[in-house]
Design a protein around this nucleic acid. Structure first.
Lengths: 191, 191
DNA sequence: TGCATGTTTTGCAGTATGTGCAACAAATAA
DNA sequence: TTATTTGTTGCACATACTGCAAAACATGCA
C-alpha cells in the first residue's frame, strides 16, 4: 500500500466531507441527496458509499485516536487517574482548535436535525468505549468491569459538555474549558 | 376523541412493538423488514408508519414523563438537588422493574446492532434534556445556562450506568443500583 | 334506526438510501 | 512493457419512508 494512494484516499474523503458539510449547511439535511454530494465532490454516486457507510457519516469529523506514546505514558503514570485522563484526551481536541471554522459549522449543522444530534451523541459514545478500554488496561481490570465503565462515562460526559461550552462561547481554548468543567463537576459532587 | 379510540391506539402500538421486538430478537435487525413486522402485527405496511416514524422506533420503550405532582415537589424542595433529582427519577424506572423480561429483551437487542445502540444512547439524551429543563426551573435559570446543562448531563450519565448495571447483573432493583452508582461517583470525585 | 361527521387504515405511486457484483480504469511493482 | 493489486463505476435490486386520496370504520345525533 503506497503512501500516495493513502493520501489520495484521505484527500478524496475530505473533498466529500467538505461538499457534504457545505451542501447540508446551505440546504438542510433532508434537501441534500447522496447524488448531489457525489456530484459536488466529483465522484460517482456509488463511490460515495465506498467512503461512507451512510449519508450522515460524511458530516462527522473522523474518529480521533490516541497516539501510542500518549497511551504508554498514561498506562505507566501513578498520578491521579482523572488528571491523567484529561492530559491524555486534551491533545485530541487540537484538531478542533486548529480548524475552528469547520468545527463550528459542523456543530451548527448538528443542531439542525435530530438525526445529526443522534450521530454526535453516538460519536461521543464510541469515544467513551475507547476511553473505557484504556482505563481498564491501566487499572488491570476487564473491559467490562464497573470501575472503567463508570469513570469512562463520567469523563466523556465532562469532555462533551466542555466542548459544547467551547463551541458556544467561542473564546478560550478547548483545554481551558475542559479544566474549568471538571472543576465544576468536583464542586457539584463535593458536599 | 373517545377513550375507546385512544386505548385502541395504545393497544395497536403495543401489538406492533411486541411483534417487532420478538422478530428482531429472533432474526436480527437487518433480517426483519417493516413488511414482516406489519404482517406479524396484523396491520398494513403503510399503517406501521402511522405509528412509528422509522423501523427502529418500534424497538424502544415509550419516552418516560415525570408526573406533575413529582415535578411540583421537586421544584419546591430545598434539600440537596442531587438527592431530589434521584428521588424524582427513580419512579420512572418502575416500568422496567415491573416488566423485567421485556426490558432485558430490549436491552439484549440493543447490544446487537450499532443502530440500536445509537438509539438507546439517543433516548438517554432526550431524557437528559427533560432533566435539564426541570433543573433550570428549580434553579430559576435559563434552559441553556451552564449549571443545568452540566448537572443534567452528569445525573443522566449516572442513571444510564446504573440501569446498565441492573440489566447486567439482574439481582436487586433499579433504585438500589442508582444509589450505589451515585455513591461510587462521589468517591471518584472526592479527593 | 339511519344519516352525517370525524378518524383511522389502506393502496398506490414515487423518491431515496444502501448493497452485491462484475466490469473497468488506474496506479504500482516487476 | 506486462502482471498484479487497488480503486472506481454502472447496474440491478431490496428496503425504508412519504404524500395523497379512497375506503373502511367508529361515533354522535336526529
Amino acid at each position: 500500500m503506497s503512501d500516495l494512494r493513502e493520501r489520495r484516499k484521505l484527500r478524496t474523503a475530505n473533498t466529500i466531507r467538505v461538499a457534504a458539510v457545505n451542501l447540508v449547511h446551505a440546504q438542510g439535511l433532508d434537501n441534500v441527496t447522496t447524488d448531489m454530494i457525489s456530484e459536488a465532490a466529483g465522484i460517482s454516486p456509488r463511490t460515495f458509499f465506498n467512503y461512507f457507510r451512510y449519508k450522515e457519516a460524511a458530516l462527522l469529523p473522523p474518529t480521533p485516536v490516541f497516539r501510542q506514546e500518549a497511551i504508554d505514558k498514561f498506562l505507566q503514570s501513578r498520578a491521579k487517574i482523572l488528571d491523567d485522563l484529561i492530559e491524555l484526551i486534551v491533545p485530541l481536541t487540537q484538531f478542533f482548535s486548529e480548524n475552528p471554522k469547520m468545527f463550528r459549522k459542523l456543530f451548527e449543522i448538528s443542531q439542525t436535525h435530530p438525526k445529526l444530534v443522534m450521530l454526535k451523541i453516538n460519536a461521543f459514545h464510541e469515544f467513551e468505549e475507547m476511553v473505557r478500554r484504556v482505563i481498564a488496561k491501566r487499572l488491570k481490570l476487564r473491559d467490562d468491569a464497573e470501575k472503567p465503565i463508570l469513570i469512562a462515562a463520567l469523563v466523556t460526559t465532562g469532555i462533551r459538555i466542555a466542548m459544547e461550552r467551547w463551541a458556544n462561547d467561542g473564546s478560550g481554548t478547548p483545554d481551558t474549558e475542559i479544566k474549568r468543567t471538571f472543576e465544576d463537576i468536583r464542586t457539584i459532587f463535593a458536599q
